[in-house]
Design a binder for these strands. Structure first.
Lengths: 166, 166
DNA sequence: TTGTTGATTCAGTACTTTTTGAAACTTGGT
DNA sequence: ACCAAGTTTCAAAAAGTACTGAATCAACAA
């Protein structure tokens, strides 16, 4: 396989993977392109390489920066902005967990709290409250597990989980 | 809050959560409805409750069964099929992990293997291979971690992770 | 075999999300 | 103050996804 073929295949697959991970296809493709790019790229270069419009490139680059998956790099003397990807996979996964936890898990926890206040006036209501209580318990556990995971560093991950797997 | 309001809010929120988890909104809503339903429901009842078409209900119920999140329940004497949700959250999460691992992580691992065969003829190619090698290492680790997680039971999860959190 | 009840399929439609591209804005140099 | 190089925004268009409903299929009962 040639380098070009390999790169293209990687960008395509990373894009597909991203789109089932709450990161849209283009966003993931930009990330892939930057991951395998030895140097920082400008918006122009990204547009060119992925055949996308200026607006699309700009919006997705900013989103990647928001998610902490890409950094701006300013070259002295150059007005243009350049971009590099976070290349440590553990950091990448951590940042995705942080973002998705904030966007998805935390709002759900709030809703679960709210709906716990349903009047326990009927048997049905009491059953409902019980089901919600169990979901809340599980979700809180998941929430704190993720917090711990995110606070830990890469070596911890490798160590603990490798041991776990044996 | 009344029972009806609570139920509706739960169904809405679960639907929203699902749609960022590779489970479409309606699928997640059906799951939510079944979760908080004391008895098994028929397709008709689900259609009625969520105001969706027969086709939509049928397709999403089948998808939920595929994912192992809902079971068919046949009542003796009744021709109609009834459905119940898997209510153990740990089972739910496990099944989602299994499905998504199969659909997303495993194809990615295959692609990473393929593109490792790029000719290391230039410095650039060698750098590319190295980046891919690191991603592969991480992904394999994630893959086996998930395998272990999925093989373990609910108590293990509660025990180990609670300890981890302290 | 025919009628009835329920499940499934799928082409067309509705809805949602992403992308484009041109205009507006920003920044720094002259 | 003005220009040039670059960035950001956003309304409209395109692409992608989900939903509907009518037709079809399957199972059983009479």
């Amino acid at each position: 396989m040639t380098l070009k073929e390999g790169k293209d295949k990687f960008i395509q697959s990373w894009g597909a993977l991203g789109s089932s991970w709450g990161i849209n296809r283009t966003m993931a493709q930009i990330h892939a392109l930057l991951l395998i790019s030895p140097e920082a790229l400008s918006a122009e270069e990204i547009m060119e390489e992925l055949q996308i419009s200026r607006g699309n490139a700009n919006m997705n680059i900013r989103a990647l920066i928001d998610w902490g998956l890409v950094y701006k790099e300013l070259k002295p003397g150059e007005r243009k902005e350049f971009f590099v990807a976070e290349k440590d996979m553990w950091e990448v996964v951590k940042n995705i967990i942080i973002q998705r936890k904030k966007r998805e898990l935390e709002p759900m926890l709030r809703v679960l709290d709210e709906i716990s206040s349903v009047d326990p006036e009927s048997d049905e209501a009491r059953e409902f409250i019980e089901v919600i209580r169990e979901i809340k318990l599980f979700s809180n556990k998941a929430d704190s597990t993720l917090d711990t995971l995110v606070k830990s560093d890469s070596n911890w991950f490798v160590g603990t989980f490798m041991k776990m797997i044996k």
